[in-house]
Design a protein around this nucleic acid. Structure first.
Length: 444
RNA sequence: CGGGGCGUAGCGCAGCCUGGUAGCGCACCUGCCUUGGGCGCAGGGGGUCGUUGGUUCAAAUCCAAUCGCCCCGACCA
């Protein structure tokens, strides 16, 4: 995977937003090995079963066959469990709250740009607690952090919920996720937070002596988001002209395109443009040999929130032309007002983009009361054709239900934490009573 | 692994049927001109036609083999 400069700058902004929040909730960053002894994976039965098909394995190193192969980390629960066992002895050592920023490898059969790449960048939080309820609190706390970043920073509305047992993380008791809707109506799992129970604690012998003097296994959590978020960002907001970035994640908030010929006006225009740019913290596209038109398209395609045109006419009248990327609206305004108005405008754009995405999510969410109804809504939907929906239906957390929905290539995305609909009802597959509707959709 | 398709310049493609100087658009380089939404004009550089073998006076083109890639199905943050 290669992430070029513009995309990486977006990732860095996103990292900062996340990392600040991790620190604010008491977590510290650490780093763990890239190569994990293969036997570690085998210590947790469900975990190895879930990840084996997509492991890349190192069998030769230093010019000779290894006695025990290493796997390139697909996720780090196992190696971190190994170290937790060394570090944790007493209830006084708990909780342990760590996060790692790293790259991982999962050998998927089919890859898709940003959404499913063989290698990807992510962060993985790993925590250990003395009690289950404290671990569950942590799981939910971090899910909320993810939802906040998705909505407030990425302007991407999400549904917080619990994954079905069939869809949960391999080795978890329960997985939580935030699910976003892309413009084609497809669901994107944008972040996950797992209650690992004592599964890894037992597998790796992470034991501590509690206040009562007894040995107990720790309760662990793990949670992660990845460069997939960039894919989600692109597919939430972009249009036919290219990327549309929410101001908070735009590496350049505003770019000035100066307009000048070879005449005497050139010096004045450039000088003023640089002065304005300095005041705003914007950049001037003063490249030679490119027409203004080409520059407008260049920045539009890169999703820059505000492009400012400044030419001889503006220089004479003390004005500037401003174009916003989200609506495409163009207006001329007095130069004197620009510095004051720009921050407010960026704030408005941020909100506007979220509102538009939220509106789309609402408009494409439907209720269904039979499996046939769900199927008829989703059956013909493809990523390319679009028309996807979030179908809210009563469905039990039972592998048979996941299986039935899979017949038309949809999945049960999550059971929402907050029921915004009509409460309990009968499962559309098994007929059993369930307490709320779940989200069924086609997903990336 | 089952079904479908494609390999010709950095990218996208035509040429192949009917064998005879390898072409177009974009990108790139030089010069002039232009600059308020992808400027224009002129000139230029760049290709063992996936590979190997065969047929032929002659193969991108016909034949055979082979390699690679893409799309659709079973796995997935």
């Amino acid at each position: 995977m290669v992430i070029k400069a513009n995309g990486y700058a977006v990732w860095e902004l996103l990292q900062r937003e996340l990392d600040d929040r991790f620190k604010a909730t008491g977590h510290q960053n650490m780093y763990f090995p890239l190569l994990i002894p293969q036997s570690f994976l085998h210590k947790e039965a469900e975990h190895v079963e879930g990840f084996s098909p997509e492991l890349a394995v190192v069998t030769v190193a230093g010019g000779k066959q290894l006695d025990e192969p290493y796997v390139i980390r697909p996720t780090s629960e196992t190696i971190i469990g190994h170290f937790f066992a060394k570090w944790i002895k007493s209830w006084r050592d708990l909780p342990v709250l760590v996060n790692q920023w790293a790259n991982i490898v999962r050998w998927e059969l089919r890859t898709r740009m940003f959404l499913r790449t063989t290698e990807f960048l992510w962060q993985e939080g790993h925590t250990a607690h003395s009690h289950h309820d404290e671990a569950v609190q942590e799981v939910r706390r971090m899910l909320n952090v993810y939802a906040e970043v998705a909505e407030d920073v990425m302007a991407m509305p999400v549904i917080k919920g619990v994954k079905t047992q069939a869809e949960k993380f391999a080795g978890a008791l329960q997985s939580y996720s935030i699910e976003a809707m892309m413009q084609n109506g497809f669901a994107l799992q944008a972040g996950t937070s797992h209650d690992l129970g004592q599964n890894f604690g037992k597998a790796f012998g992470v034991q501590f002596q509690n206040k009562e003097g007894q040995l107990d296994h720790v309760w662990q959590t793990s949670w992660g988001v990845s460069t997939r978020l960039i894919g989600g960002l692109i597919m939430s907001h972009s249009d036919d002209k290219g990327l549309v970035l929410p101001p908070k994640l735009a590496p350049a908030k505003a770019v000035i395109v100066p307009i000048f010929g070879k005449g005497p006006e050139k010096g004045g225009v450039l000088e003023a443009a640089h002065r304005i740019a300095k005041e705003l913290g914007a950049r001037v596209d003063d490249r030679e040999g490119q027409t203004p038109g080409a520059k407008f398209f260049h920045w539009e395609r890169r999703g820059v929130p505000v492009v400012l045109e400044f030419g001889p006419r503006d220089l004479a009248s003390g004005t500037i032309v401003l174009k916003r990327r989200d609506t495409g609206g163009k207006q001329s305004m007095p130069l004197a007002e620009l510095a004051e108005k720009l921050p407010a405008l960026l704030g408005e754009m941020q909100k506007n983009m979220f509102d538009a995405a939220k509106q789309r999510l609402k408009a494409n969410t439907v209720l269904a009361n039979s499996i046939g109804e769900v199927e008829s809504v989703l059956n013909e939907v493809t990523a390319e054709k679009g028309g996807g929906k979030f179908v809210m239906a009563h469905v039990k957390d039972d592998p048979r239900c996941d299986q039935r929905v899979k017949e038309f290539k949809a999945t049960i995305r999550c059971i929402p934490l907050v029921d915004e609909y009509d409460g309990p009802g009968k499962c559309i597959v098994t007929g059993e009573q369930v307490d709320r509707r779940a989200v069924i959709a086609k997903a990336y």
